[in-house]
Write a protein that binds this DNA or RNA. Structure first.
Length: 694
DNA sequence: GCAAGGTC
């Protein structure tokens, strides 16, 4: 008989505990122990119709069409749980957790107590997961709890010294709050039945129209943004600005609408008349300020996914490959929410950073900053930000076996991490204004020392940063007419949705990504993904239109749920209040969804019609004789660059040319290439072809 | 056929 059975959440945690306590079995703090582990939730609620007692209720609760039964009466439910039937998307196998629970039960038979040992996640998910197992094996003896800040030996041993008894689960706030959360979410499945029914009633032959706290909010947000894009009308304006001989632009800061109104003109003639009021002016008040900037935040999986999307890897592939690399301990735990690391986690990786640098081709001499900056340090981070693992691959080539994106994952992850070992980026901030019109100012940065940016460049936009700018400002600047336009709404993307969910605290690091992956995959996908950019499919559009103006489609519903959960966690509110709030949401949204279905024809129809009748807009062409041979015609712009007359001449001679191009993500880069005959969808055409190397 | 939360 051992003193305690230590129950870990997953295999990797059990392994780290074995390392910290001196084996899978042994003695820690004067108590004998054995470590076992689950893999996530081993139990989940039974189907609704299997949680009710009477035959009549079984009938009602299995219906997808009886709107009179909803909202469900939670008093009818036993809230009984059953073994999780987890479908693994990578192995494509469905497996019950029955055997896992039985194995834990067998081990528990030899123990005096069970110790639930998970990280200190305040949502209480670890408590729920532990209690599900403890209840499933009908355990009647004492239950203890430890919570740890991270899985390093030091933190695990520290946690062990702060063990508490929690045998009465109904007095444990963390358990009560996550139990309430799970019931709230379970009840929200009614909205899927309601939406599926509503769409079919409106004549759409849909499979299932899924709705939930995450799904509905994501899909509605994309739809609303698509509406903004579809209804966007480009409105050009004309505004007086100045330019000095080196090309620095001097403009007014137009903070509010009134100022914009006064300075911008809708027509060119008025704009020109405005510009004519100004004369050339000397440049004055030139200031040069030396500044530094520390490396940016570390990555989480959502951010890593969006970076790799730009390289053409889809989120599903990245998730699968990352998982394999995690199992090989080459990278850290995937499903973290952390963007920081603990001092312990930093110390653990320090001995191998030079080796990692060598493997990914970063100069180890750049890694001189050996103190963890406070902006990257957390006192508690269960797994820490996504980063390289302690096991370092011998070469990049070795990684290929994990998947197509493995090398890109490792390179990005390693460079991002190593950047925090680089010194701050140094630059000069240069500002100046016009002597005659001091409202017109310029400001730009000139790089002095790249430092960490030579390891990992985290600049998203090339805002006022000039790659090789002239630091010489003035001596004077001349007025010119600047033509601008109201900005086009952002295209929905994985990154954009990720930021939105994070801002509203909707979902966790793990679910934000897995829900998006669900919405993107399968025959009934709601989202089309292309290089990280999102558009809605027809069922996706239906799902979105149905939840317009509903509570489930609103980000604030999660906030309300979490506020209630916090009160439950502090034992200030009865869990029943949380569950009642779910019923209120159903009661509120049911008539709205049925009503919204009358608008489906308008939006779903209209949108597909607009797509098919979209006019083809011809692109500006250049033409000429190619190398004394055929007369060819080709697009006169390429990746944001308009070929000059001279470049067109060079291209027609067959020369290789280089120019500054802008990617669709706004990055500028040097493109090199020549005019070539190419094939697209079986059609031959002439056009510039960049030489991107291999 | 349903949620979100874990996990692989």
């Amino acid at each position: 008989m051992i003193d305690m059975l230590i129950l870990a959440e997953k295999a990797s945690a059990a392994k780290h505990m074995a390392k910290a306590f001196g084996g899978t079995t042994g003695n820690v703090g004067g108590k004998t122990y054995k470590i076992v582990h689950a893999h996530g939730h081993l139990m989940e609620f039974k189907e609704p119709e299997k949680m009710v007692a009477t035959e009549a209720d079984k009938q009602r609760y299995s219906s997808w069409t009886d709107m009179q039964t909803m909202p469900w009466n939670q008093a009818d439910f036993s809230w009984a749980k059953t073994y999780t039937k987890a479908y693994n998307a990578y192995t494509k196998k469905s497996k019950s957790t029955r055997a896992d629970v039985a194995a834990i039960k067998a081990e528990a038979a030899n123990a005096q107590a069970i110790l639930i040992a998970t990280d200190n996640d305040p949502s209480g998910e670890g408590d729920l997961l532990g209690w599900e197992i403890v209840n499933a094996i009908k355990w009647q003896k004492p239950v203890y709890r430890i919570r740890f800040a991270d899985e390093t030996p030091k933190s695990l041993n520290k946690a062990m010294q702060q063990m508490v008894e929690i045998t009465d689960q109904f007095k444990q706030g963390e358990y009560l709050k996550s139990d309430a959360r799970s019931k709230w979410d379970f009840l929200s499945m009614q909205l899927t039945r309601i939406s599926t029914y509503a769409a079919r009633q409106a004549g759409y032959r849909v499979k299932v129209i899924n709705q939930g706290r995450l799904k509905s909010v994501i899909v509605l947000k994309i739809w609303q943004q698509q509406q903004l894009i579809d209804n966007y009308v480009k409105t050009p304006y004309f505004e007086a600005k100045f330019k000095d001989p080196a090309g620095h632009i001097f403009a007014r800061k137009l903070k509010d609408d009134a100022r914009k109104q006064a300075a911008r003109f809708a027509d060119e003639t008025s704009g020109q008349a405005d510009v004519a009021q100004y004369t050339k002016s000397p440049v004055t008040n030139i200031k040069r300020e030396h500044k530094t900037q520390a490396p940016g935040a570390l990555l989480d999986l959502a951010k890593l996914g969006s970076l790799l999307a730009q390289q053409g890897f889809n989120s599903k592939e990245v998730l699968a490959t990352y998982q394999k690399m995690y199992e090989a301990e080459i990278v850290s735990y995937p499903r973290t929410e952390d963007r920081k690391i603990t001092q312990e986690q930093y110390n653990e990786l320090l001995p191998v950073v030079d080796t990692i640098a060598t493997v990914v081709g970063v100069d180890p001499q750049l890694l001189t900053h050996r103190v963890l900056r406070s902006k990257h340090r957390a006192s508690s981070a269960a797994h820490g930000a996504n980063r390289p693992g302690i096991k370092v691959p011998k070469s990049m080539a070795e990684l290929a076996k994990y998947g197509p994106s493995a090398q890109a994952i490792y390179k990005t992850l390693a460079a991002n991490y190593l950047a925090i070992l680089g010194e701050d980026y140094e630059f000069d901030r240069i500002t100046a204004e016009l002597q005659l019109y001091p409202d017109f100012k310029t400001g730009f940065n000139v790089p002095v020392k790249l430092n960490y940016r030579a390891i990992f460049d985290d600049t998203e936009q090339v805002a006022t940063e000039v790659k090789s700018p002239s630091a010489v400002v003035g001596p004077d600047a001349a007025p010119f007419m600047y033509q601008g336009a109201n900005p086009k709404p952002t295209r929905p993307s994985a990154d954009w949705i990720g930021k939105f969910l994070e801002k509203h605290n909707i979902g966790t690091g793990a679910t934000r990504l897995s829900v998006q992956a669900q919405l993107i995959s399968g025959k009934n996908a709601f989202i089309n993904e292309k290089r990280g950019f999102y558009t809605l499919t027809q069922p996706g559009t239906i799902a979105a239109v149905l939840v317009r103006n509903t509570w489930i489609g609103s980000p604030s519903i999660t906030k309300q749920l979490f506020d209630h959960m916090d009160a439950v966690g502090k034992l200030n509110e009865a869990p029943a209040v949380v569950i009642d709030s779910a019923t209120k949401v159903i009661a509120h949204d049911l008539p709205l969804i049925l009503n919204n279905s009358q608008e489906l024809a308008q939006f779903v129809g209209k949108q597909s019609a607009a797509r098919t009748t979209k006019k083809y807009r011809p692109k500006p062409k250049a033409q000429g004789q190619y190398q004394d041979g055929p007369t060819v015609e080709f697009n006169s712009t390429w990746s944001g660059h308009k070929f000059s007359a001279e470049e067109i001449r060079s291209l027609l001679q067959g020369d290789v040319i280089s120019f500054n191009a802008t990617s669709k993500y706004g990055k500028t880069y040097t493109a090199t290439g020549s005019l070539k005959q190419q094939t697209f969808k079986g059609k031959k055409f002439w056009g510039f072809k960049a030489d991107f190397g291999k």
